[in-house]
Design a protein around this nucleic acid. Sequence first.
DNA 1: CAGCGTGCCTGACATATGTCAGATTTTAAC
DNA 2: GTTAAAATCTGACATATGTCAGGCACGCTG
Lengths: 229, 229
Amino acid sequence: MTNGKPETPDLQSAEPMLAEAELNGVRNEDLVRQRREQICDAALELFLMKGFAATTIRDICAGSGVNQASIYDYIANKNDILRRLLNQLWFRRDVVNLPELMANQDLSMQEVLARYFREAWAMKRKGTLLAYRSVPHMQAEDRKAMRMRERKLIEDLCVQLHRRAGNMPDDKRVEVIANLLVFLTAFAPMRDWLTRDIPNEDMVQLISAGAAAAVEKMIDEICKDPANG
Amino acid sequence: MTNGKPETPDLQSAEPMLAEAELNGVRNEDLVRQRREQICDAALELFLMKGFAATTIRDICAGSGVNQASIYDYIANKNDILRRLLNQLWFRRDVVNLPELMANQDLSMQEVLARYFREAWAMKRKGTLLAYRSVPHMQAEDRKAMRMRERKLIEDLCVQLHRRAGNMPDDKRVEVIANLLVFLTAFAPMRDWLTRDIPNEDMVQLISAGAAAAVEKMIDEICKDPANG
DNA sequence: CAGCGTGCCTGACATATGTCAGATTTTAAC
DNA sequence: GTTAAAATCTGACATATGTCAGGCACGCTG
């Protein structure tokens, strides 16, 4: 195809996901899906409430109504549940992607951020919390996959920031901006009691205005004083 | 005294700390202090590396060189260690206080934030990480104390933001600004791999410039469109 | 009804963990 | 050197946990 956005890097390319174990204790695939959903739903609530380590398989069984022995017909082990949850909630592809949004030059920075925060805070609230809180409990290889994905996100963001900033010099500090934006994704989820008092849309508007101003200011700063490469 | 800063609210007032257990298995107080230090030092590293729940008393004993039975002469239980660490690292009074800094009207917002982030990121890095990560493992009453202290911080910050913004209307959204600033305290600690590539002072300057711009923009926004009370 | 396949559950194993009683060693004073 | 106080350690208890083997019940086919 020759008529799409020209040489934008492929932002949608193979994302690393966490490898879910295969099981074949139970044949009926619909049943497996249904039970897995029960299990994951219950586990998510418990993980968010008590943390991964403090949640026992017995808790999850009680919460989901699945028997303590049977649960191993549907998931391989406790870590497998976490993996499946993160695949659903953190690595989901149906939620807007910040670098991609930024690539659309018709949108102002503030509009980009407003759309992004609105959707991310609505759709990925629990995923964000789970991801931030349970990194220490993940298997080494899963943690590595998370890091890779984050790394790629930051890189893509840096590319887009340069694109938007015109002739900003190459500077390590651009990464700081990208990291700040990624960090802000966790703002509403982590400060969740705030959103009980304040309508979500108000937060979205306010924070995206502030964040856009911050980004512009920081880009300015880098242009004005191009110190580090 | 009549010549201090006039009616600034007492920002230094009784901070709630977590209640440490008293023990009297060992008489020599210096020894107790020393052993406790060993224990807490080892525990901190382990808690940050593996998380509170995944760290066992045996790990802490191995790391600190204190015997598994003796450790209970110096700390009451695993949660007591966490409490002591947070009292040292999170509730420390020797580190600059943001509302207090803001009360000094001679400093620009950017200067205030630069001073604050510089010191907070240098001195409270581990405390911040520990606090954010181990909230779910704390005893209910300790969690309550943490919340209270945070609540007070936000309130003090709101007061100072109003003071600085001149005639900004009373608006719930001011809390969002305060929360954003508190949240940013965790930026460098949580994105710690960043700081391995980028000098700390560069981060301080860049983020405080950006954050100051964001705060101003958000105050503007609230003044321009005074919707919520 | 018998026979079988599929999903479910009782019950338990092996290990890990927080905690500590009580024996043992060290220290210091005479 | 004797002795008593103080600090440290061995060893263990009670419990909790992840995991699963092997038996059970139910529905389907003939």
